[in-house]
Design a protein around this nucleic acid. Structure first.
Lengths: 190, 190
DNA sequence: ACAATATATAACAAAATATCACAAAAAGAG
DNA sequence: CTCTTTTTGTGATATTTTGTTATATATTGT
């Protein structure tokens, strides 16, 4: 089964996103091409900045700017900024990273087995329990995705921030329902 | 199951983050490679500043928590948080790092050969020219040293933030004189 | 302080992997 | 179909990584 070079490289990327790392040996077998061809594929993927070649295989490129984590947002594929990190821990022990509370709260709709949910306090940079936190939606401070959602450890902080930058302060559950309703209503499906 | 060399080092780091310390003996067993290879892995991890080699194993390097840079504040010796970085470039090409605008502005008093001065916008995380920036002094948001000094790229942002969290908005020069006067007056050496 | 033990480093050889150059094959263009 | 361009595979050669042995250095107990 012949495969176009671009398609093959996309395939490699797809595998890589699932498996974190992949060896040339494995790729030779799966794609039924020579090691040299794999080398060339990996070279161009690395050139484009998608991956990093390491001896024996490749890993997803994780050269983050300072201020960014090594993780990609599962929802929007953006590299996760340190200051808006949002982490969902599942009961299965899996960690799901989102770039900001906007994506994080949306992601929660897709996961029923959440164990703990953490978000980073926008003012103080500490991780806080998202369930106890307050979220300022639609303020004029857009640091990541829109609609802007910022996380605060206390309602007071959120309210004070709102005085200057507008928006509406919601607790965890209110923020979740607000966001999912909003996304749905825009798309118009029911 | 073969392990890519770089992945192996990542694995070591991951274990280290959970276990604080790890012995070479254990690593030899877990990774099924020779002690020499472990030594070499630890050497390069130490070179990169991620760990510290100790006799018989390694511990996590205390430098480089997520959210902190590798630098120490020249004034207060605190490790520099990423989100409040303040950098003074001298005409001699030297870089002086401060943990926050508070220390940075104070440091400026000691250096007459400043070339450029950069500070990080507290809202958006971008580095801005400190000379064009506005500083909110004495707000109730204390993320680093006190008196609290936060940097904003625009006067409007600073004012809006002030509405919620108090303090006084000053431009570059006003902030410098304000801070140095204040420190002097407290110490009483006229 | 000394020997006994453990750990670290250095040097070398073997194995694994990467790169290069060129020829064969495939794909497109006219 | 013929010519050109691109992609692929092969074998030779370079480079990197690894393990082993020997040697040096540090730690421990007496």
């Amino acid at each position: 089964m012949p495969q176009l070079p671009n398609v093959r490289q996309e395939q490699i990327l797809a595998w890589l996103r699932h498996e974190q790392q992949i060896t040339i040996e494995v790729l030779v077998e799966r794609l039924a091409v020579s090691a040299m061809t794999i080398h060339r594929d990996l070279d161009s993927l690395a050139q484009a900045g998608h991956i990093e070649k390491v001896r024996g295989g490749a890993v997803l490129s994780n050269r983050g700017m300072p201020g960014e984590t090594a993780h990609q947002c599962v929802l929007c594929a953006m590299r996760v900024p340190l200051r808006t990190t949002f982490i969902i821990n599942t009961t299965a022990g899996q960690q799901i990273h989102a770039c900001c509370p906007h994506c994080g709260l949306m992601l929660l709709e897709q996961h029923t087995d959440t164990d703990t949910v953490l978000a980073r306090d926008f003012l103080y940079g500490r991780m806080v329990n998202a369930g106890d936190a307050f979220f300022l939606v639609d303020s004029e401070v857009a640091v990541c995705c829109t609609p802007s959602v910022l996380c605060f450890g206390t309602e007071q902080d959120a309210q004070r921030f709102r005085q200057g930058f507008g928006g509406v302060v919601l607790d965890y559950h209110a923020a979740r329902t607000h966001l999912s309703q909003r996304h749905r209503s825009v798309l118009g499906n029911n």
